[in-house]
Amino acid sequence: MAHAVSTPAGAHGGHGAGHGGGHHDDHHDQESLKTFGFWLFLITDVILFGTLFATYVVLRLNTDGGPTGAELLEMNGIIISTFILLTSSFTSGIAVLEMNKGNKRGLILWLAITAVLGASFVFLEVNEFMHLVHEGANIGTSAYWSAFFVLVGTHGLHVSVGLVWMVALILQLSRRGITPVTKRKVSIISLYWHFLDVVWIFVFSIVYLMGVM
């Protein structure tokens, strides 16, 4: 793998130094293209969550005589996981600041803290789901619970995918350090992480706060 980075440089090494600068721009362009593409992906993800929120709102009263959210949802645990996720967004922000300072160790450390916080969030969510199932509310109980589990679960799935991605990035950073490519990757995952935080604020308000009201 180590020789891979030098391949482009090697390939044009024999053609004079005149266009070395141009290549650098090429790479730069590529990274900014990818960041822009990721912003567009986030727009599509907003639509995805928007659709799930819409179905939740349509089905929120359809409990079919079964348990309601107000009866089973426990706010204490949710408030704890909300604070954990919000903190992880903050720590991922610090990671980016460390990256901009060029501090590889700090970057990896704060990313690792973010990942640990994210993992605890997922752990708490799985616990909550198991508790709910134990209490007699599963995905097939009623339309309300179908909408609840799919909306909250889709967010949890996004966080879990982000975790795997973050671990992969930490490995890449420790091997390659801070390069234009890894820099772009860290910015993108931090964007993704903040986005999931914003979605969670809506989940917290619409599903939990309004659910127990």
């Binding site: 179905t55 349509v58 089905l59 359809n62 409990t63 079919d64 995905i139 097939g140 109980t141 009623s142 339309a143 309300y144 179908s146 909408a147 589990f149 799919v150």
Partner: peptide
Amino acid sequence: GAHFFTLDGGGN
């Protein structure tokens, strides 16, 4: 076995 679009279970 969820109930998003079924006739029973409060689906729509």
